[in-house]
Design a protein around this nucleic acid. Sequence first.
DNA 1: CCTTGACTTGAAGTTGACTTCAACTTCTAG
DNA 2: CTAGAAGTTGAAGTCAACTTCAAGTCAAGG
Lengths: 143, 143
Amino acid sequence: MDISEVSKQTGIPSSALRYYEQKGLLTSVREKGERRRYAPSVLDQLALIALGQAAGLSLDEIRSMLTPYGQPNIDRQLLVAKAEEIDTLIKRLKAVSNGLRHAAACPAPSHAECPSFQKLLKAAATGALEKRWGKTKLHAPRG
Amino acid sequence: MDISEVSKQTGIPSSALRYYEQKGLLTSVREKGERRRYAPSVLDQLALIALGQAAGLSLDEIRSMLTPYGQPNIDRQLLVAKAEEIDTLIKRLKAVSNGLRHAAACPAPSHAECPSFQKLLKAAATGALEKRWGKTKLHAPRG
DNA sequence: CCTTGACTTGAAGTTGACTTCAACTTCTAG
DNA sequence: CTAGAAGTTGAAGTCAACTTCAAGTCAAGG
């Protein structure tokens, strides 16, 4: 497959593919000439990268889980740690979601006067201010 | 309260407080001289900002929910939309978390050979690749 | 052969949320 | 009064994950 083929199939722009390769997350071959050609397994590798990103791993962290050949080579402890981090995040997000819904439905004339909104504020703030976040980060690509 | 007091109580660096003010999210008074003084209500405002951030709102979006005086003035539709976005995110995160745990526990010698890991990969990749994220973003401040 | 379009590279630009810096000014303690 | 801590400003720097750009290479079609 050539780069545009991979790009088409995955939706990942070729610039990103080159970037991944430059970062050492991907391998390509130069069969003849200087153009990249990809083995079909590149799709799995990209899926793995996507998984890692969805889990909040940085590209550097993801690379550390790959062999030089792109085969997964996973640090199980890190995985569990990340899973726990995500679970914590989920809890906080649930609270935030409920909070938002409440805020949207709250009958108080101003939220400054709504006791449950105040409570929610406090709770969310506690999570957000106290901990000042771990490293957890879910990023929207393209920025 | 002066800036260092607020900073101490919230854990938010004074540089960030000035930045918020510059962005129009916060108000301070200059009682005498050129130094900022904050009303106690600033703590609530900061809590609100933290809530918004936890919900994945950008500072600009948060500002749009505040009156010029820092009072909340909330767009309920946006709140519900954000809550739904967060719920979607939660679902995806749950899948990722489970996936990570499985990957950590998986007995297959290489994850390349583990069918359920493959399946997970596909699923996560579908979420991550297909949608290429909405605008949802949970950011770790400081960076 | 020549054009056209896809590809290549390295370098520089983008975005958001801050932080850091330089150069001052201003309180506060001694 | 004076040192020094803490505050002020605007401007520039940082970080991650890309994107965009400029300038050049290469392959296929007419």
